[in-house]
Structure formats: C-alpha cells, structure tokens
C-alpha cells in the first residue's frame, strides 16, 4: 500500500501528491485504473537531489493531478508498462536531465546525439564546453570537442 507523504494545492489550483519513489508504480497503477492518462514528466535538478514531477490527466472528469517524487541517486522506476506515452517522455528526461528510469527497455537519448557528453538541463552542466556534431555515411551522429571535426 502506498503512502502519501503530503498533499497540497499549487498556485494553478492543481492537486499535488508528494510520495516516495518506491510507491510510484503502485500509485500510478491505481490512478490508471481510475481512468487517468500520463500527460507529462518533468525533471528538476535541485542540486543535491532530483525532483521528478508527473502530471496525469483524466479526460472524463477533466481532472489534473500532479505527483511529485524525489530521488538522490538519479534512479526512478519507469512507467512504460502503464502508459506508452511514458516512453518518449522518459527518454527525453533521461537525455536532458540524466534521470535513469529503471525498467525502460529502450532508454536512449532522444533529442541529442547518442555520444553527447553530459545532460544539459543539469545545473552543473558546463555551457562553455562546445560539442561539435558530425554525421558519418550511414547517418549516425558523432560528437567531438574538436572544432575541426564538426559541421
């Protein structure tokens, strides 16, 4: 049985549930049974830990619920078994924020090239370091820190 740590209402009038990450799949399973669908996944880098925020939506009741978890080891259970929408969303958060979704079968980068170093949305990402992308003959992208190898 999952445990809701705290419940609040945010500024836009949305119900927010704070839970532990081990309860996530159980809670989401219950909400899926109630007719909720995944709308978006947002990762927030809080420097000492990562917040992962799920927005789920019931089209019949017109109800939006926000579920917040936090993780200190970058690992979060995947929701791909529940909703197909989680596939690309989790890949995006993995790509840009570096959250590892455990149980995701195809956890690859989606927006950036596969060889990209670092996760840009992290607060400690070094923006001064320029990475150059090039493409080989079979269409695979390669990343290099050397200016001459990029486009």
């Amino acid at each position: 049985m999952y445990k809701i740590l705290s419940e609040e209402t945010d500024k836009s009038g949305m119900k927010v549930l704070n839970i532990d990450k081990s309860d996530l799949v159980e809670l989401m399973e219950e909400y899926k049974g109630k007719g909720y669908y995944l709308s978006s996944i947002t990762g927030v880098d809080m420097k000492d830990h990562l917040d992962v925020i799920y927005h789920i939506h019931n089209f019949d009741k017109n109800d939006y619920i926000c579920v917040k978890i936090s993780t200190s080891d970058e690992k979060v259970p995947s929701l791909t078994k529940l909703w197909k929408a989680a596939d690309w969303d989790e890949r995006e958060q993995y790509d840009l924020m570096g959250i590892i979704f455990e149980g995701h079968e195809n956890l690859k980068r989606i927006l950036l090239p596969e060889e990209w170093a670092g996760h840009p949305l992290r607060k400690d990402y070094d923006l001064k370091k320029v990475q150059y992308v090039s493409m080989d003959r079979s269409g695979n992208e390669h990343v290099s820190f050397d200016e001459t190898e990029g486009w």
Binding site: L96, I110, L111, L112, P113, P120, L121, Y125
Partner: peptide, 11 residues
C-alpha cells in the same frame, strides 16, 4: 529520429 532542431529552449 528527432532532435535535428533541438535548441534546448528550456535551458
């Protein structure tokens, strides 16, 4: 495959 127009507006 997507990401060819990625500018990371969020960052």
């Amino acid at each position: 495959t997507i990401g060819y127009l990625h500018r990371n507006a969020e960052k």
